[in-house]
Simulated scan of single mutants.
Amino acid sequence: MSTASIIEMSNKNTSVHETLGRFTQLFNNLCAGNMAELGTVYGDNVKFTDPFSSVQGIDELTEYFTDAYANVISCGFEFGEPVINGSDVCIPWVMNLQHKRIRKGKSVKVDGISQLVIHKGRVVSHRDYFDAGQLLYENLPVMGGVIRWIRNQAG
């Protein structure tokens, strides 16, 4: 990601850019063994929401990600160009996930976007939007085939 290609809606805020850089780096290095790194990017009172959960505070966030990454074989993100408006950031991504309990550890790609609020160099609000079906339901035995068939018929 180059700062020259970032779409900006307001004046350049160096702290936001630096925090966004730490955020993307964190998620491309995050694993079950380094959850303490979350505190380098997130504020103590962070609010995090995704299609599965909503947590408040760095301790709850750390616990949530510790559980989420417990069976992860590998997880990486291809981040798109962020849209920045002051302290508000939206950044699209594609997650490449290998999880012991999803598709027997085979790679799964999930499209999503993160909506962030950055204040004083820390992420204070983080909401992820992604298709839970693309992550889980389409990859379940029996049910996954039915969901993929329905999706193909609708599209």
Rank of each mutant, 00 (worst) to 15 (best):
F23W: 09
I6V: 15
V124W: 10
N13V: 13
Q115V: 13
V16D: 02
P82W: 02
Q56E: 14
T62N: 07
V110N: 10
Q25D: 15
L116Q: 09
V108C: 05
G21K: 10
G133A: 09
Q25A: 15
Q98H: 05
A36G: 10
G33W: 05
L140A: 05
N139F: 01
E78F: 08
L116R: 09
A36W: 09
V72A: 04
L140P: 03
V123I: 14
I7Q: 14
M95G: 07
L136H: 04
I84K: 01
I84C: 03
I147K: 02
R151A: 11
I7V: 15
Q115P: 00
Y64I: 00
S54M: 11
F23I: 09
N45Q: 14
S114W: 02
T24M: 12
I113Y: 02
M143W: 04
I58Y: 06
G33A: 06
L61W: 01
F65E: 04
R122N: 10
I91A: 02
E37D: 15
I147L: 07
G43P: 07
T24F: 04
V108R: 03
V46D: 00
R148P: 03
M143Q: 05
V72E: 00
P92N: 04
D111Y: 06
K120N: 14
E63S: 13
G112F: 07
D44F: 08
Y129D: 12
S5R: 11
S74H: 00
G144H: 05
I102F: 04
W93M: 01
D111Q: 11
G33V: 02
V108W: 01
A32G: 04
K109L: 11
R127E: 08
D88K: 12
N13K: 12
Y129V: 15
P51E: 07
E63I: 12
I150A: 01
F77N: 01
V94W: 00
Q98D: 04
D59Q: 08
L135N: 05
F27P: 10
G112T: 07
L38Q: 05
L135T: 08
I58L: 15
N11D: 14
V117N: 14
G80R: 04
K106W: 08
N96L: 06
C75F: 00
P51N: 07
V55D: 00
I147E: 01
T24D: 05
S15R: 11
S87M: 08
D44W: 05
D44V: 15
E78K: 13
I6C: 03
N29I: 03
D59F: 00
A36K: 09
K12V: 15
T24W: 03
S10N: 13
I118R: 01
K100D: 10
G86V: 03
I113P: 00
N13E: 11
A70Q: 06
I147P: 03
T14G: 14
E8K: 11
F65Q: 06
D128C: 14
S2E: 10
